[in-house]
Design a protein around this nucleic acid. Structure first.
Length: 837
DNA sequence: GCAAGGTC
């Protein structure tokens, strides 16, 4: 039997499609990467009985990047990134082993192509919803893969990469080389993030340039009953001339009666909501739940993987034709929060949902199973509750209310008042925040009736500026201008926050920082297209032409790159224009920071710049030395590096983390071949320096491949031994007053022996011993005094819970022998000579 | 260290 291999775009789709096509009779097993499954079943294909193997990829298989050597910022002119720098396709997620996985399943491909000589063997199914009819129709009308669509995607990828990286590198290097308080580790630029920032700054500018204007309003009150009065709105709404307003006031004030000119009563409806898609969910999450888009998306993702809601990334607001609305509704029939509403809907019949937009991706977001707050936790519950209420609302009835209004005349001026009374609340019962506000009902009257005027007064008011953009408004703007997609909108918003271009204020409003404002104003000054949303859509148009086969991939790519290369050169030549704005808000490097440690070249104090990216700046030599981020920096006892005479500094990630000394010069200009930029003394292979790996290294890390456990000489009296690569930290010899790494090694495991001195009173050593030399891994006395831990880290990624091999003394390690760096050289001076570059 | 866009 022949095999038909089918590949969907993600695991969940493979499963649901296989289920449909096999009518539920497939057998499934995990693929070799543990993420993608293979679903197998027998069926017919092109009239033959075949074995189907259905699997999927998982996001993009390949990604685009520059060749390695073009990723060295100090060695490559960003202008080269437009054409000279070659790009390569890399596996987007090497851990998934996607390419190998597909190759295994695809092992038949060469055979396929040969055996069928010329006959087509690769097809593409096109469908717009995951329903039986759609999927079966797609299988009956298989098309060919569209090469043009692929080219269009490739072109977008290459444009975004080249343009984004060129501008980002140039800006970052230029401004970080001049200013010391930008407080952003990266001055990034991108075709989506920059217009996103642009929207926020545009609103800021409107607020700044806003000039309040005074206006005047007439307000009249009439008596409708003995003790009730009615407030009337002026038909002219407001006037901006005080004297004119005064004139109207004088004319109406003379009148004692208000005459009813007309009354009306209209039945109106407030429409039930459209089915829920991603951006609407994100808007409501931000504006009503106070939950940022990134966080909301993560929460939704969790609800989805746990089976509480349907797939949360969709642009569609229309339920597929045969979508089962009653099933999910029935599941909610006993929910304590909305059982009554749901039961009534089921008994009296649900309403037909409104016709929304079918984007052809996934069905709208709906609850998949009933859940309570206790089960989900408060954050996830709030989102789930909203999704569920929204779903119920889509099958509820419109809210119906009566809008009545009365028009009055007082002298020559016209006034009116309106009131709403709810006829049937419809969906607002399940979405109470949408309900029509309760208002006092209007008196019943008819044309010609009169009411006594109790008061007419003139109010002085001022126009007020708009407020900063809310996240919800920003999402709407992005959606309207085609900036980003449902899945990437939260990422772009997050980006401009992380880069410190905007900050989230109360009410989730986005207030641009000085940096964000200066950047956008600078783009406006030099080349407004760099920040306007129109440029993205213009490029998108070209890319669509490629996809439709109406434009040539090479030509579009070449032309667009050429345009942006010119823009880039013009930007670089005109950067002084942006710089003028920078100067106003930021301080030059030389005027920033506090004196900390001495430069090895001029022996003057260098200044420590704490703002991101933290670094040391020598204003005399005009040199900047970057420091490790996410930690604190102190002077290290005025000790100096034996190689360059720079004063060492001590980096620390906090009392529960690790710390190590580093030489500012070596860290930026590695002295030995086997050292990389950013390394501290704990990775330095200097054979004799007392701070080096060679002198303080003990043995191989118990967890990671390449790390070495190094004694932290500053950690006493709670001594620590920390890996110089990963987060492993061993706490040891508490209260020892001296710990030294001995020149001798353990005969069993080759680790360096430690020489430990205790005070008499606090010594944990057996007998009355105060001194002991031994191996931390093998010595039975030391094993009791060593505890392995992970350093408290700023990166949750690396936190990874307790170590697999946690526990006293179980950690076995050899003094590393694979690399010359960690071996104790026999002839120190000759080894030193050999290490120098 | 950089873009955007997929999914996990």
């Amino acid at each position: 039997m022949k095999t038909v291999l089918m590949v969907a775009e993600k695991p969940s789709l493979a499963q649901s499609i296989a289920k449909i096509l096999s009518r539920g009779s497939m057998s499934s097993h995990k693929g070799l990467n543990g993420t993608c499954s293979v679903h197998e079943y027998t069926g017919t294909f092109a009239g033959q009985a075949v074995r189907f193997k259905m699997t999927s990829v998982c996001g993009h298989v390949m990604t685009l990047d520059f060749l390695g050597k073009y990723n060295k910022w100090d060695k490559v002119d960003p202008a080269e990134l437009f054409s000279q720098a070659p790009t390569e396709k890399k596996e987007a997620n090497p851990k998934l082993n996607m390419v190998k996985f597909l190759q295994v399943l695809d092992a038949v491909l060469p055979v396929m192509n040969q055996a069928h000589g010329g006959e087509k063997t690769v097809f593409r199914a096109r469908f717009s919803s995951i329903t039986d009819t759609d999927i079966c129709n797609a299988m009956a009308r298989l098309g060919e893969p569209d090469h043009n669509e692929a080219l269009s995607v490739d072109a977008r990828q290459e444009l975004d990469l080249r343009i984004g990286c060129a501008f980002t590198r140039f800006q970052t290097k230029y401004f970080q080389g001049k200013y010391g308080n930008l407080d952003s580790s990266l001055i990034s630029f991108g075709p989506c993030q920059t217009p996103t920032l642009g929207f926020c700054v545009e609103r800021h500018d409107k607020i700044q340039s806003f000039k309040p204007e005074t206006y005047w309003v007439l307000q009249a009150k009439v008596n409708t009953d003995k003790d009730r009065s009615l407030l009337l709105d002026w038909d002219r709404v407001r006037v901006f001339d005080r004297e004119i307003a005064q004139m109207f006031l004088n004319m109406t004030k003379l009148e004692k009666e208000a005459q009813v000119e007309a009354t009306s009563r209209k039945e109106k409806a407030k429409q039930r909501p459209l089915a829920l898609n991603t951006v609407e969910m994100l808007r409501v999450a931000s504006s009503s739940l106070g939950m940022g888009p990134q966080h909301a998306m993560q929460t939704a993702e969790r609800l989805y993987t746990q089976g509480y809601i349907s797939y949360p990334r969709t642009e569609t607001t229309h339920y597929p034709e045969n979508f089962d609305l009653k099933g999910p509704l029935r599941q909610q029939a006993n929910h304590p929060a909305w059982a009554d509403t749901v039961k009534r809907l089921l008994a009296e019949g649900i309403n037909r949902p409104r016709k929304g937009h079918d984007a052809g991706d996934h069905p709208p977001i709906t609850p998949m199973r009933s859940a309570t707050e206790a089960e989900l936790g408060s954050e996830a519950w709030r989102l789930y509750e909203y999704i569920t209420r929204h779903f119920i609302a889509t099958v509820s009835y419109d809210c119906k209310y009566l809008q009545s209004s009365i028009s009055f005349r007082i002298g020559p001026e016209h006034f009116c008042c309106t009131g709403k009374t709810v006829i049937s609340p419809g969906f607002t019962e399940i979405m109470p925040w949408q309900s029509v506000p309760l208002e006092e009902s209007l008196p019943t009257c008819q044309r010609g009736d009169t009411f006594a005027v109790s008061e007419v007064k003139m109010l002085e008011k001022q126009t007020s500026p708009p407020d900063y953009l809310t996240e919800a408004e920003l999402i709407t703007l992005m959606e309207k201008h085609g900036i980003g997609t449902d899945a990437s909108i939260p990422v772009h918003i997050n980006n401009i926050c992380q880069r410190n271009y905007v900050v989230v204020e109360s009410g989730r409003r986005l207030k641009p920082t000085n940096l964000g404002i200066v950047l956008v104003h600078g783009y406006y000054k030099i080349d407004a297209e760099l920040v306007l949303p129109t440029i993205r859509s213009a490029v998108e148009k070209q890319l669509n032409l490629i996809a439709q086969g109406k434009a040539d991939y090479r030509q579009v790519l070449g032309h667009t790159l050429d345009v942006f290369k010119r823009k880039f050169h013009y930007f670089v030549d005109s950067i002084a224009g942006m710089d003028e704005l920078m100067e106003v808000s930021f301080s030059p490097l030389a005027a920033t920071g506090k004196p900390l440690s001495r430069c090895g070249k001029c022996h003057r104090f260098m200044k420590y710049i704490q703002a991101k990216p933290s670094r040391l700046h020598c204003s005399h030599c005009d040199e900047t030395y970057t420091l490790p981020q996410n930690g604190t920096i102190k002077l290290y006892k005025e000790l100096r590096c034996p190689l360059d005479d720079f004063e060492l500094v001590l980096w620390s990630s906090g009392s529960r983390g690790k710390s190590y000394p580093l030489c500012p010069y070596c860290s930026n200009h590695p002295p030995f071949r086997d050292m990389k930029k950013g390394m501290g003394c704990n990775e330095c292979t200097h054979p004799t320096c007392q701070h080096s790996l060679s002198m303080l290294g003990i043995g191989q890390c118990v967890e990671c491949e390449s790390g070495v456990l190094v004694l932290d000489p500053t950690s006493g009296p709670k001594w620590k031994v920390a890996c110089n690569k990963c987060n492993v930290v061993a706490h040891c010899f508490e209260n020892a007053h001296r710990v030294r790494v001995s020149a001798d090694t353990c005969s069993a495991c080759e680790a360096a022996l430690l020489d430990v001195d205790f005070n008499k009173a606090k010594s944990p050593l057996p007998g009355d011993e105060t001194q002991h030399t031994g191996c931390v891994f093998c010595d039975p006395i030391f094993q009791e005094l060593v505890e392995l831990k992970h350093a408290a880290s700023c990166h949750p990624m690396h936190r990874g819970g307790p170590g697999r091999r946690q526990g006293r003394g179980r950690a076995r390690g050899r003094r590393p022998t694979g690399k010359p760096s960690a071996r104790r050289p026999k002839d120190k001076m000759s080894a030193l000579a050999a290490y120098f570059v």
